[in-house]
């Protein structure tokens, strides 16, 4: 670091202050509050909080419903990530094949990512609405084939679609950038060596995409655990019969509907630990193996 740039330390302090304040207000403070709630229990008739140690966590981890929610979250994370990454990879591979006007494409593709999750949810709720939406034509042809309001699997499929759609754009940008950074001559060498388009993708482009692939994977999984609230809230409200009650949504429900602050806080701590662990794991153990040259 070049300290000499700031002769007066208070200028430096002034410059970083807004950022520090934002981080404090929106991260450290809520986190510390969550920690406080997670390890305490509010007295039934007021009178402050009582220290209970890991009691809240024990309750949660012994609750079958919590594990249901964990399972549902994992299902959602798996399918959203797989769908979003698969779709974006295919799109990027095609866009990379010298498609004219890909610059325009690139901008066009980022828009979905800029749309707030609830808006995405609302749009998809309309599209997938069994009686009024686009999907209603499906029901007209095959009555009862699509009913996310009563069928939990359908509901899950619906939020997976919405979540993946929102994520595709972001992944696409990364994949396309990574593909474009692969020297053309490698693919030409592959062509000369006799490999067809698909073979070149599999043998040359995909392996060279690996670092980007794992980065995007981490981001996608993390996002599907933490950033799915808006979609669930607008599309299914966690239903039917808790079939789409993802962990983030359950935190909200327990905390703000059930007013069980301590339970919700403990859940959010668990979720945070999970995400941190996931990130650390992937970056330390997987990404390390996929660097070349």
């Amino acid at each position: 670091m070049r300290r000499a740039y700031f002769k007066n330390n208070w200028i430096a302090a002034l410059v970083v202050a807004p950022q520090l304040m934002i981080i404090f207000v929106f991260f450290y403070w809520p986190t510390s509050q969550a920690l406080y709630w997670a390890f305490t229990l509010e007295q039934p008739w007021g009178g402050g909080n009582e220290w209970v140690g890991f009691e809240n966590f024990r309750t949660i981890l012994n609750d079958g419903r919590y594990w249901d929610s964990v399972w549902v979250s994992c299902v959602y994370a798996f399918f959203t990530t797989a769908l979003a990454m698969g779709m974006s990879l295919i799109l990027a591979l095609f866009a990379d094949r010298q498609l004219r006007g890909y610059r325009f494409f690139r901008v066009g593709m980022i828009w979905p990512y800029a749309i707030a999750a609830p808006a995405v949810g609302l749009a998809f709720r309309f599209i997938f609405n069994p009686s009024a939406g686009v999907a209603s034509y499906l029901n007209l042809a095959f009555p009862g084939v699509w009913d996310p309001i009563l069928n939990g699997d359908h509901a899950m499929a619906m939020i997976v679609f919405a979540g993946a759609w929102k994520q595709v754009a972001y992944n696409f940008i990364f994949f396309l950038a990574a593909l474009q950074s692969i020297p053309r001559s490698l693919l030409e060498a592959g062509a000369i060596d006799g490999a067809r388009v698909l073979r070149r993708m599999l043998d040359i482009q995909l392996p060279l995409l690996a670092p980007t692939f794992f980065f995007v994977l981490v981001i996608n999984i993390t996002d599907s655990f933490t950033d799915s609230f808006g979609i669930v809230d607008t599309m299914t409200g966690g239903g039917p019969a808790r079939a789409t009650n993802l962990m983030v949504y359950k935190i909200y429900e327990d905390g703000f509907r059930g007013l069980d602050y301590s339970g919700a806080a403990a859940q959010s701590i668990i979720l945070m630990v999970l995400v941190v662990a996931l990130t650390v794991f992937q970056f330390r153990f997987i990404e390390r193996k996929v660097h070349y040259s």
Binding site: P183, L186, E188, A189, G190, D203, P207, A210, S293
Partner: peptide, 8 residues
Amino acid sequence: QNYALYPH
């Protein structure tokens, strides 16, 4: 010219 070897 740049050999275009497959780095992986």
